[in-house]
Design a protein around this nucleic acid. Structure first.
Ligand code: FES
Ligand code: FES
Lengths: 145, 145
DNA sequence: TTTATAAAGGACAAAAATATCTTTTATTAG
DNA sequence: CTAATAAAAGATATTTTTGTCCTTTATAAA
């Protein structure tokens, strides 16, 4: 088990990739993105369709079309992507799968994991989509397997 | 997405349940455990078979048989259960699914998530199987949905 | 307007996780 | 020894996740 679903991993990596390639109105095709993040092209297409519907990224059809991110969206937090794909279980769900996480009727791990979940949430809320563009351009970070 | 797989959630809850019922050599049957933690009985049976093979819990067949935990095993860390069921991806895997998490070729989220993973690992290593027995007996913690 | 391009959409397929069913084996009580 | 009990083992079923294929729609260039 990983922290995020595979779908969500692809989604975040793809959004980072699109963000750092989409300056001055440049659009990136699915083939390029899939190659850039080492993911199955057709599956990624579905994921990006979803993110596009949710308004996290944008797309245009036809020649010179592709996926891109509005300047204004670069400041959106990563938690938007995670919620869109994996839901908010990671932020609010009980670590042991109880139907609701509550202070009143807590599971044994409640206290320790509440703190961990809060931290995950905070990191994802304070990290933005566009935040790593420079490092990505400079090759300091990897998005490939 | 939750932190642990459903299988692992059942496993941890079941082990807690067994731990707090298994004093003075008492053994607990699968029916009792499944009811006690609100889980599908036959699926849980498979999970406990596995934990038993891995030496985390013990079992005996026949009349008055059932599952129990050796006194000495009460001090085992929860990380043993998690590793047995979900593997160590949560502790060592890359948050964005890169084939290996490395300082040399890190993903953009490496630093922040390394710290989070380490904390999860630490909590699970320092929390023991038997640690909550008293609270469980006193009904301060819940293992049921 | 026609053609080429690229995403959207819907159907389908494969793999993994979750769940159930049936038979076998070990153990204990009578 | 026999019968009853309870876990082990193996087979099968269902659901969810992941991945692919094929057709349609929108757009732009020629
Ligand atoms: S009740 Fe389990 S984490 Fe809060
Ligand atoms: S490389 Fe992604 S978490 Fe370390």
């Amino acid at each position: 088990m990983a922290i995020f679903s595979k779908t969500c991993e692809y989604a975040i990596r793809a959004v980072f990739y699109i963000a750092h390639t989409s300056n001055k109105g440049h659009k990136t095709g699915i083939k390029d993105i899939a190659a850039g993040i080492d993911s199955p092209e057709l599956y990624l297409a579905k994921i990006l369709q979803n993110l596009s519907k949710q308004g996290i990224i944008s797309s245009s059809k036809g020649p010179n079309g592709g996926f891109y991110i509005q300047e204004s969206s670069l400041t959106k937090p990563l938690s938007d992507i995670v919620e869109a794909v994996d839901g908010n279980g990671l932020f609010y769900g009980c670590a042991l799968g109880l139907s609701q996480c509550s202070e009143v009727n807590p599971c044994p791990l409640h206290h320790q994991f509440k703190s961990i979940r809060d931290q995950i949430h905070q990191v994802l809320r304070q990290t933005t989509i566009g935040e790593f563009n420079e490092e990505l351009i400079n090759g300091l970070f990897s998005l490939k397997k």
